[in-house]
Design a protein around this nucleic acid. Structure first.
Lengths: 214, 214
DNA sequence: TAAAGTTTGTTGCAATTGCAACAAATATGT
DNA sequence: ACATATTTGTTGCAATTGCAACAAACTTTA
């Protein structure tokens, strides 16, 4: 199974940070909502064990996966700054989550704290990584056509892992949600792309064929 | 003219930061590209005078305005982390831009620097604001229908400025680019929404009418 | 102020998409 | 292993959108 590029917090980093700010560990069962007790708390969540999704549910009840979380992934409440929609983090397996209060970083932690510098750096990296992911999503959604969204998604992911073949980290249904398109329309387009000789697909593995001739 | 909510760097903040890191000032003429000399330089750009746009141009040459920059706005190279697209900052009027090298922040600046703490805070705020803006854009683009995108845009902006009336900060043509929809299709939908009694529009001013009955 | 360029407004038409509905295949839970 | 739930695959049809093309209004520039 391919791993998509993703910044992870190492044990060392966690140790560094726990020397500087308060870190709490909580466990969640499959399907439970991970809500870091009230979203506006400036907490960073860190997935230590298990899988979770950041999902957005709009006024009409439509769900969309914003980001798949795997061990080492972080999420912060910056994701929850939507206006009309609700953002949740939901565990897909049993999970262990660390919550890091980064309001402390700016207030409580002494400037001459031995670990402060390193931790600020980590947090800046995390925020930057979030920005990149969100930019990629905008890149994908800016195409009106499903085919272009698929190709855009593939090229982003293939650039990350340097291959011509991708195993989706989600089901086709979730893939449609991620691309913000109708599932059956996605299905139709995938089939069409196969018959057009652009891709090949076995279940969740998609291979981009050579299309140098254009 | 309404101002959309936007974090600004105050003179004080600029002064604070100039005590800590190197800040360079450059001027640009209308239509010039503001490229902070090579995009991967971890520079923050700050608009002091004039207007500029962050635009994205995809492989097919389609342009999309990501963010309108006004005096006080910042932009950073996190915006330029697209894979298949190019992101530019282009001046729309004569502009004065400050460039802040924030690579220095992590390396050169001494930890006991008097201004360090305050500046880190400013930068974290800027990154967080960027995240919010990108999330709003995703929120808008996640709707397949033009009408929903318009309504989503309006409700986000109206929440910001607490009113029922919005004066677009861009032309209708740019509005279409921002929403990633065809201009004539946007036109058509705006007209339809007017005849449906949902909005009223005079030039760039859109008023959301009461639709409590649903 | 005349000319050139840009934005706005409009429309017909074809392509794409969403939606609904259903059967088949998988996965899950007891 | 059985029953139930979920995901996948397929299709017809209607609605929405993009595209092309053009006229009118408005800006900019010489």
């Amino acid at each position: 199974m391919h791993n998509f590029k993703q910044k992870k917090l190492t044990d060392l980093q966690i140790e560094v940070m726990s020397n500087c700010v308060n870190i709490k560990k909580k466990t969640f069962k499959t399907g439970e909502y991970i809500l870091s007790f009230g979203l506006r708390q400036k907490m960073i969540g860190l997935v230590a064990v298990g899988k979770a999704d950041i999902i957005r549910i709009d006024i009409d009840g439509n769900a969309s996966v914003i980001k798949k979380l795997i061990p080492g992934s972080i999420f912060n409440d910056a994701f929850s700054c939507f206006s009309n929609t609700s953002t949740f983090v939901i565990s897909r397996t049993d999970t262990e989550i660390y919550f890091i209060d980064y309001a402390q970083i700016m207030t409580n932690c002494l400037m001459n704290c031995k670990y402060h510098h390193q931790m600020i750096q980590i947090i800046l990296e995390l925020l930057t990584e979030n920005t990149i992911i969100l930019n990629e999503k905008i890149e994908i959604l800016s195409y009106p056509k499903i085919r272009d969204r698929i190709l855009s998604f593939l090229s982003i992911k293939m650039e990350d892992i340097h291959t011509q073949s991708i195993t989706l980290p989600f089901s086709i249904t979730e893939f449609a949600e991620f691309l913000c398109v109708d599932r059956s329309a996605l299905m139709r387009e995938l089939k069409k792309m196969e018959s057009d000789g652009i891709i090949r697909r076995h279940n969740k593995t998609i291979t981009l064929l050579n299309v140098s001739h254009y």
